[in-house]
Design a binder for these strands. Structure first.
Lengths: 196, 196
DNA sequence: GTCTATAGCGAGATAGAC
DNA sequence: GTCTATCTCGCTATAGAC
């Protein structure tokens, strides 16, 4: 992607995050990119095209990041730990983009929406499969796997909503806390496997 | 509040939920309310006034609901259980309004925003205080109380994002699952107090 | 590849009759 | 309290020069 397009995208991310997609005008994106609004249309077909670019590339980068972090880890407990760490870390590092992903899907036309949701569901399924597998094999506490996976994923995703880059805790510290919360609390069999 | 105003409010809730606040036109609200858009301005000063009404009354009703559910319960464990149950149940019952509350605050002017946030922070503080109190008194597992309270609140709030009124589980069933997840997993001291 | 200029539309809100 | 009619503005997007 060329430099100008990157600048436009960055400006759009900041504005969509701060003012929401529909409340953001192309003229504002242009202003923050130091170009004229007509020039944006050389790089993007439409305002929605910018949104879709942001959503889709963020989702793909998240997927790629998790896959890298899980590579080579066999043990289900460790896989789950790595997955939570990666998810939370990404949601701290890419706060704005993931918050847009969570709230601006209604700005997409049907076909773009479908394409994004396929990508997102595939990502979430990785988590759900790990959790179901861990429960089935007796490594994690039994329970409603679907609900537990929702609880875990939404809790970890919501970090993007309260994390402060200059706050008391770093993204890595929060990732560690969540890793523990998820694996040794939410998923841990109450006593049986503590020493096993 | 008179009948027409209620109809307008209901229509706005459905549209803000489905299409977002900024993407919703006054003409659409009017159409769904079976009146002319000019007539809305007899009941509300502006579009933002409708949004503020929705946000503020929902927040106050949530606060009132929790207070009713907690009344007379002394034991911290049981208070926490009741609070989680109430919070999750409300987020199932009032799904649309709470989702608007989570994503459309950027539609408020500074003073309205301030008023809402005061109300919301007061609500969240009830939870945080219970958690801190429980940890300090040794009833709940020690840990970063602030982060744990974020984890719990965001997880419970996010139920509004995936709950399906006609789905497999009722609001009451989900409330029960979350009550257990929070109190016997996230907050429970790993072994010490199980039989105490 | 970026510009100026503008088309074309729909938005929020108001005026004033009934 | 609801209506019709309309004001005014700012939006997305396009046309066409350079």
């Amino acid at each position: 992607m060329n430099a100008t397009k990157e600048i436009i995208k960055k400006a759009a991310i900041n504005l969509f995050y701060k003012k929401s997609y529909f409340a953001t005008a192309m003229s504002s994106i242009a202003l923050d990119s130091s170009i004229q609004k007509a020039s944006i249309y050389y790089h993007y077909d439409s305002k929605e095209d910018i949104l879709f670019d942001i959503l889709m590339t963020t989702m793909k980068e998240l997927t790629a990041y998790i896959e890298t972090c899980l590579k080579g880890i066999e043990n289900i407990d460790n896989r789950m730990r790595a997955a939570v760490r990666a998810h939370v870390k990404f949601h701290c590092d890419r706060q704005k983009e993931v918050l847009i992903s969570d709230s601006e899907l209604r700005g997409l036309t049907a076909s773009n929406y479908k394409a994004f949701v396929i990508q997102r569901d595939a990502y979430e399924k990785k988590f759900q499969d790990m959790i179901i597998q861990g429960i089935d094999q007796g490594y994690f506490a039994s329970g409603d796997a679907k609900v537990i996976s929702y609880a875990i994923l939404t809790m970890c995703t919501a970090v993007a909503g309260w994390f402060k880059p200059k706050g008391r805790l770093s993204g890595n510290q929060i990732s560690s806390i969540y890793e523990e919360l998820v694996v040794t609390k939410l998923l841990r069999e109450s006593s049986r496997r503590d020493i096993a």
